[in-house]
């Protein structure tokens, strides 16, 4: 493969589809993490929530097919999706109860949740199918792709809606794009979203004016479980149609990083998650050019660290400037009002 051919593949609709496919799970998880982060609850357990959703998505759809054999594959997939989302939210509830009721350390409890998910999925997979690696022995069902013929017929840009093979994108790919807008509206245009961000900024002040801080943090953690769950079921019911041990492969941690890379804004976070998706597709493509994938896989984490440092540097300069400005006004006021010194 030559360089020219390489760049030609970058401009095709299927490459665009590949980026969307890679970005979708991380966009979901990052948006979920953002909601809880803005409520003052850093969610280290996105990885585990995705993983458990991916597992129960597969198991749920297999189970539905065995109980109602006459129903349609779409129905099996929907039951699986519900099971996956339910499992992720249950795990989020566990985290919330331990943090908010039992005063568990949030970060370590999050790590505990990740370990629980990693252990439980493999343990149950082995107990159900006798295989520890993947659910290949089970027949599971994927959620469908959604052809949007009207949009696909638009000249030039219509190709973007074609998906990988002309049948449109996966329904959850559209859902991820939709979720970006919905989360923004939720956080910035609804009463609950405004309160949620206030809780994250200053919980004590919220408590004094009667905002139910704990209840709002419950909602935030459960929402993040729901969104991370969507990312998880996409992995096992869209990206692939089976569950593999540890199939999240660090995507939850990258999603967590995306929140910080995106400076804790909705569009920044989604953009950062999309960038991580782009980087992973590039890694696969560059593998064809004899560029070691290890180098490419390191780019996204490296950019994240550099961005964190840049943000921190800017913030420090700003606070220093603020402090200086406050000192100046304070001094000026002291000179104006002599009794202030008393």
């Amino acid at each position: 493969m030559t360089i020219v051919e390489f760049f030609q593949t970058l401009l095709t609709a299927s490459f665009f589809a590949a980026i969307l496919r890679a970005a979708t799970p991380m966009v979901f998880a990052a948006l979920g993490g953002l909601i809880s982060e803005l409520a003052g609850v850093i969610n280290v357990a996105l990885e585990g929530m995705m993983l458990i959703a991916a597992f129960f998505g597969v198991v749920g759809s297999t189970w539905a097919a065995s109980v109602w054999p006459e129903a349609s594959p779409l129905f099996f997939a929907l039951v699986g999706a519900a099971a996956g989302l339910g499992a992720a939210m249950l795990l989020a509830l566990v985290l919330a109860v331990f943090y908010l009721e039992f005063d568990a350390n949030l970060i370590i409890a999050g790590v505990g949740i990740n370990i629980l998910a990693a252990g439980l999925t493999v343990f149950l997979l082995f107990s159900i199918s006798g295989d520890k690696g993947s659910s290949a022995g089970l027949t599971s069902f994927a959620l469908p792709t959604l052809p949007l013929r009207l949009l696909q017929d638009i000249p030039v840009i219509g190709g973007l809606f074609a998906g990988a093979n002309g049948n449109g994108h996966h329904v959850l790919v559209y859902a991820a794009l939709l979720a970006i807008g919905l989360v923004w509206v939720f956080l910035h245009k609804t009463r609950l979203g405004l309160r949620l961000r206030a809780v994250g900024e200053n919980p004590d002040a919220c408590r004094t004016v009667g905002v139910p801080v704990k209840r709002i943090q419950y909602v935030a953690i459960l929402l993040s479980g729901f969104l991370a769950g969507l990312g998880g079921i996409y992995l096992s019911m869209g990206y692939l149609t089976l569950f593999q041990a540890n199939m999240t492969a660090g995507r939850g941690f990258l999603a967590l990083a995306a929140i910080f890379l995106g400076a804790r804004s909705v569009f920044g976070t989604a953009g950062a998650a999309a960038f991580f998706g782009l980087a992973s597709v590039f890694a696969a493509q560059l593998g064809l050019l004899d560029v070691p994938t290890a180098v490419v896989f390191s780019v996204a984490p490296l950019v994240t660290i550099l961005a964190l440092l840049a943000f921190a540097w800017r913030r420090q300069r700003r606070t220093r400037a603020q402090v200086a400005a406050e000192l100046i006004t304070l001094n000026a006021r002291r000179k104006d009002t002599p009794d202030a010194q008393a």
């Binding site: 039992f102 409890a109 949740i113 629980l116 252990g119 439980l120 493999v122 343990f123």
Partner: peptide, 16 residues
């Protein structure tokens, strides 16, 4: 992997 489950339970309980 059963041990991972036990480990997770111990972690969650001990930090509470």
């Amino acid at each position: 992997e059963m041990v991972l489950v036990v480990q997770a339970i111990i972690i969650l309980l001990i930090v509470s």
